[in-house]
């Protein structure tokens, strides 16, 4: 796919972010049926259809340049959105290699990686970066390896060390998150940082997910989709900045929901890292406004039904309580009650 970047769009202030018709068609709708409940919906991260967000292990789309600029803006205000404990250095290099190799292999028109022993040359044309460095020597990069490469990648990245039969959140770059904080979760075990999630603990979801991840294999990454909603196309809905975005949730009406309310879908990928035996968890957020969503009739019907019938505990946990009804009212005229076809494809 030949990506045409939209370098000037914004995720704050005037919110000029929009999806092109092509971006709408490839949006990863997370609802294969008209109702939603948790499941351990993990599948192998195998290549998907050409043009889809899962065609390649790491997706680059039309928002790439703008998202990297947004990340830089967040980091300038809050450098602690990137953190890494000292024992995570080998996993940082693993992540750098994973991202550079994926992008250079899958998007050769935009990225190039030349490896001569430990001397690497990295070219990122969209961001106009050309960097020669020594793999394994942090002094040869302008930032630590994970910060360096995730400033050039979409989505959040969390690295978990594996020890004592558990996974520990001990490095990451988190600037596009749905109301959670790396600073708060640093050093926590798998179940500690999933503590706030309702229902799922009782369902045994985290026991099974942890057991599965502890045995995650090299070269066999997995993925899952998760979702919530966000008012305005705001990537940085962090607890640290709650005062900026929290009040927006009280401003949604059936009249403005089409423009203001966005479905926020996270494509989450998990890779075993080779040198460190750590696991990297990528959380890539895709945003779509309700008025963009309803251009696909099947999706309008389905999202209307999912939101209308959502379990009250999930409405609360996902932070939808203030505006769910307004969004359902906006979507209702687009739902004629016709059955929807199975799966998530537009039609």
């Amino acid at each position: 796919m030949n990506v045409v970047f939209k370098p000037d769009e914004t995720f704050r202030d005037d919110f000029t972010f929009r999806n092109s018709p092509e971006a709408i068609r490839r949006f990863p709708l997370p609802f294969p049926e008209d109702r939603y409940m948790y499941s351990v919906n993990i599948e192998e991260h195998l290549p998907g259809p050409p043009g889809s967000v899962i065609e390649f292990p790491i997706d680059i789309d039309e928002h790439y340049v703008a998202e990297c600029r947004e990340r830089a803006l967040v980091l300038a205000e809050e450098p602690r959105r990137f953190q890494a404990l000292p024992h995570m250095m080998s996993s940082q290099w693993d992540c750098l290699e994973l991202i550079m190799e994926s992008l250079a292999r899958d998007y050769p028109q935009h990225f190039a990686l030349e490896r001569r022993g430990s001397r690497w040359v990295w070219t990122n044309r969209p961001l106009q970066i050309h960097q020669t460095f020594t793999f394994g020597d942090p002094a040869t990069l302008p930032q630590e390896p994970l910060e360096y490469i995730t400033r050039q990648a979409q989505g959040d990245w969390v690295v978990m060390d594996q020890r004592e039969g558990d996974l520990w959140c001990e490095a990451g770059m988190v600037t596009t998150q749905a109301d959670w904080s790396l600073d708060f979760d640093m050093g926590m075990s798998f179940k500690e940082w999933h503590g706030p999630v309702p229902l799922a603990h009782e369902m045994g979801v985290f026991d099974r997910a942890l057991k599965f991840l502890l045995n995650l294999r090299l070269n066999e990454p997995v993925r899952r989709l998760n979702w919530t909603m966000t008012i305005h196309p705001r990537l940085d809905t962090s607890p640290e900045n709650y005062y900026k975005w929290g009040p927006d949730r009280a401003t949604v009406t059936p009249q403005n929901a089409g423009n203001k309310a966005h479905l926020r879908v996270e494509l989450q990928g998990l890779w075993r890292l080779p040198r460190s035996n750590a696991i990297v968890f990528s959380i890539r957020a895709y945003l779509i406004s309700m008025q963009e969503l309803v251009t696909v009739p099947k999706w309008a019907r389905r999202v209307h039904r999912v939101l209308r019938d959502l379990h009250p505990a999930l409405v609360d946990y996902k932070g939808l309580s203030r505006y769910r009804d307004a969004v359902v009212e906006y979507l209702a005229p687009f739902d004629d009650g016709a059955p929807t076809s199975p799966g998530t494809a537009p039609e």
Binding site: S90, D94, L218, P274, R275, S276, N277
Partner: peptide, 8 residues
């Protein structure tokens, strides 16, 4: 070969 960690 793919990279690995000691003990593999």
């Amino acid at each position: 070969f793919p990279a690995f960690s000691g003990g593999s």
